[in-house]
Design a protein around this nucleic acid. Structure first.
Length: 465
DNA sequence: CTGGGGAAGGGGCCC
DNA sequence: AGGGCCCCTTCCCCA
């Protein structure tokens, strides 16, 4: 039996034992039949959809209901593939999906394409369709849209070329303070393709400087989308030229600051610092934009009676229950690290991670000996400083290491001693917390003072076991 | 080379 | 919605 499962792809299926010379004959026949069969099948499915026959899936787009076949959506869209594969078991159950991120008109174009292979693109809807296709992870539609825009540009750009060049030169080089948003628009920071895709009101991006707004929208979105093509799983390709991509991403190998790196980072040149700061600021800005444009509801999985709300990450297939969790998750894609450690300048995505890091690394909160792992009290051990790192050692281990290898903390004093970071006995919790968050006056502590190991007397009065 | 431990990062979920 | 806790995984370092 010859069955072609891939839409739009003809394949020859040779019957077992069939001579090769007959294959070629069969190829032409089968190809013709296959195309005819595909066409007929698609028409049948489309007819069924229009008559709502055997439809087992509902898609709600801004209140407008679209009935469809689950298997067709599954085969056509990465998003639906993910959505449907996460749906509860039970093939007889209907599946419901709700979208607020594109209009019913846009989805009509998409679903018509799914069921007919014909994409009804126009100058007015191409961006919306491309955005929706990107969201739904339909690469073929994205490519059609790209080609459509490209071909439009080939015509338009030639017409507008001279004026556009003039406009670009004005907008790009006249703003010394960088306040001109048009410059940023031209540069199109690629860190967040999804925001552009989420924003259906593309008119807000028409700040390119030319007079043809359609053309400018196209340029903006082409840059965003082409530079960050979405793969089948929805993750965009990385741009090695983009400074923002140099920061940790979940699919990358984690970049731990090695000791060498850490020490070098203090001596990095001014330009690098500025670039890092710039990249950091851009990241924070894009992250903020990303959060502000996050859709309120991304999808509903489950049965009609018991829908399960899920927020889907626009960068990967991960879904979460709460919007706040999505916001937190997005930091691993945006690279935003809003919580810097005052001691070592290492940055964290979460406050709790910073706290954990600070308490473990800089406060020696762990009441065990670093060497022998035995419990350490104020009688049985000391806090040992190694640069900005602190840990505890029992007296026996300190003696074993030898006092010659250890030196007293030069900061040991009533006012500036690091032990102050541990908090004061009887201090209320808020004060205690603030001690590890804000410590701007302790800059000298952040530097390696020359002593590799420093011992200081333990003040366990405020510590909890 | 390998296994153990520490640190960091991320997800789920409760308050 | 944000903060926080718990748990798990991953990565790196070191013996």
């Amino acid at each position: 039996m010859d069955i072609v499962t891939d839409l739009g792809q003809s394949r020859l299926h040779r019957a077992p034992g069939e001579p090769c010379h007959q294959q070629h004959q069969r190829w032409f026949n089968t190809a013709d039949i296959t195309v005819a069969h595909q066409s007929s099948l698609l028409k049948q499915l489309n007819q069924q959809r229009r008559q709502e026959l055997f439809c087992d899936c509902s898609v709600l787009v801004e209140g407008q209901l679209f009935r469809a076949h689950r298997n067709v959506l599954f085969a056509s869209s990465g998003y639906f593939r993910m959505l449907l594969s996460q749906a509860p078991d039970g093939l007889s159950d209907t599946v419901n999906a709700t979208f607020d991120v594109f209009s019913p008109e846009t989805f009509t174009v998409i679903i018509d394409f799914i069921y007919s292979g014909q994409l009804d693109l126009s100058r007015n809807n191409v961006i919306d369709v491309m955005s929706a296709a990107s969201y739904l992870q339909m690469n073929s539609v994205i490519n059609y849209c790209k080609n459509f825009i490209k071909s439009s540009l080939d015509i338009c750009v030639k017409e507008e070329e001279s004026e556009l060049c003039l406009s670009m030169s004005e907008t790009c080089f006249t703003s010394a303070a960088g306040e001109d948003t048009t410059e940023q628009q031209v540069r199109a920071p690629p860190v967040s393709p999804p925001p552009a895709l989420w924003t259906r009101d593309t008119s807000s991006q028409c700040t390119f400087g030319g007079k043809d707004s359609d053309l400018e929208i196209s340029i903006s979105n082409i840059k965003t989308n082409v530079s960050s093509p979405v793969n089948d799983l929805g993750a965009e390709a990385e741009d090695p030229q983009d400074p923002l991509y140099t920061l940790p991403r979940p699919e990358r190998k984690r970049s731990r600051p090695s000791k060498k790196k850490s020490s070098n980072s203090h001596h990095s040149n001014h330009h690098t610092d500025l670039n890092l700061e710039e990249a950091r600021a851009q990241k924070a800005e894009k992250a903020e934009e990303l959060y502000s444009t996050m859709p309120s509801i991304v999808g509903v999985v489950g049965q009609f009676n018991h829908p399960i709300l899920r927020y889907k990450c626009p960068y990967c297939t991960h879904t979460v229950k709460r919007k706040a969790d999505l916001k937190r998750h997005l930091r691993c894609h945006t690279g935003e690290r809003p919580y810097p450690c005052q001691e070592c300048n290492k940055r964290f995505t979460r406050l709790e991670h910073l706290r954990s890091h600070f308490e473990t690394i800089h406060q020696a909160r762990k009441l065990v000996c670093r060497k022998c792992k035995c419990p350490v009290t104020e009688e049985t051990g000391h806090v040992v400083c190694e640069g900005t790192r602190r840990f505890r050692m029992c007296t026996a281990c300190i003696q074993e290491v030898g006092c010659d290898n250890l030196s007293m903390d030069p900061l040991d004093g009533p006012n500036d001693e690091p032990a102050l970071l541990l908090g004061v006995d009887g201090e209320e919790e808020g004060e205690s917390k603030r001690s590890w968050i804000v410590n701007d006056d302790d800059d000298d502590l952040a530097e390696d003072s020359g002593a590799d190991l420093i011992i200081q007397q333990i003040d366990d009065s405020d510590e909890e076991i």
